[in-house]
């Protein structure tokens, strides 16, 4: 079953790669795209790591990832002209469909959970199956053909854009940090202040580490990789905490940091501008008590629930 699941999952990675390659082809064929060739190359490189990544030497994949980084560094990957959703048409269609429009999104989450709970396929394959089934359901409900679905997929892929691969890249960075022993160094530093073996102090260090690092970087995902390797594993998980509970709570603890930092402009500065607020830090000020309370909740929950 394990081997079957892995092959099934590989099939979905190949499919994801084809979706990315489809965007690459569309960009390449679009004469109005400002950086046609470079953007297409980015999507083809990404598509290759997905579709054939398992079958080629890792070194080649590594070179391709660096290639993508060089393209984004020089700002060569652009959305280009895409057909935005027409407000009137969407309005008109939504009047016809009513609440049926929620069925595909609801089915995505439901199918994924059902497959994970009640079949031997597991959660990861479940996500893939649910994604494919829900797009079929969406096509049926909206009476669209595959061409429209692919077109919309292309629009969404371009809108998500290069930042979409950031979580995966951060996870990969975690592997490199671990191989280089970064976690051990941080653990060594922390252990001069935090006594190893004390579960409560370990939990506090993990939660506050996530909060502070997220505040500085403005990004909980990046903080998670570093802090989990450096503090989470040696001071919490290795002391007997459930990795699922500890890891899950650490991530949302990071979000408490996001609530308090001007570095997270998308969330805290954007609404100030949109709502024409007087105080530039008005949203952060409002969120501060919630964030502090939630930090305490996280510490308590991790301490009592994970052990």
């Amino acid at each position: 079953m394990e081997a079957f699941n892995n092959n099934f999952l590989e099939f979905f990675f190949i499919l994801t790669g084809l979706l990315m390659a489809h965007t690459g082809v569309n960009v390449l064929l679009d004469p109005k795209h400002p950086t046609r060739l470079q953007t297409a190359v980015f999507w083809f490189l990404l598509a290759a790591t997905f579709s054939i990544g398992r079958f080629i030497p890792p070194f080649v994949s590594g070179v391709m990832v660096v290639g993508m980084g060089i393209l984004t560094l020089f700002n060569q990957v652009k959305i280009g002209p895409i057909n935005q959703v027409s407000e009137e048409k969407a309005e008109e269609r939504s009047k016809r469909l009513g609440n049926k429009i929620f069925i595909p999104v609801v089915s995505l989450a439901s199918i994924a959970i059902i497959i994970a709970q009640f079949t031997p396929l597991g959660g990861q394959v479940g996500i893939g199956v649910a994604a494919v089934l829900s797009v079929l359901i969406a096509m049926f409900i909206t009476k669209s053909d595959g061409k429209v679905a692919l077109h919309e997929g292309d629009r969404m892929v371009r809108q998500v854009g290069t930042v979409g691969i950031l979580p995966q890249l951060l996870a990969a960075l975690g592997v490199i940090f671990t191989a280089a022993g970064v976690g051990d160094v941080i653990a060594g530093m922390i252990s001069t202040v935090v006594p190893e073996g004390n579960q409560l102090i370990g939990v506090i260090a993990y939660v506050l580490g996530m909060v502070v690092f997220t505040m500085i970087m403005g990004n909980a995902f990046a903080a998670f990789t570093v802090i989990t390797a450096g503090i989470g594993v040696p001071f919490v998980i290795a002391q007997g905490a459930d990795p699922v509970i500890a890891g899950t709570l650490a991530m949302t603890a990071g979000y408490c940091g996001t609530l308090m930092t001007p570095m997270a402009a998308n969330f805290n500065a954007l609404p100030v501008a949109l709502l024409e607020m007087k105080n530039p830090n008005g949203v952060i000020k409002e969120q501060l008590p919630y964030a502090l309370l939630m930090i305490i909740v996280h510490i308590a929950l991790m301490y009592f629930w994970a052990f």
Partner: peptide, 10 residues
């Protein structure tokens, strides 16, 4: 990414 066509259609 595999969920994007469905989201786009919706």
């Amino acid at each position: 990414f595999l969920t994007l066509p469905m989201i786009g259609l919706s």
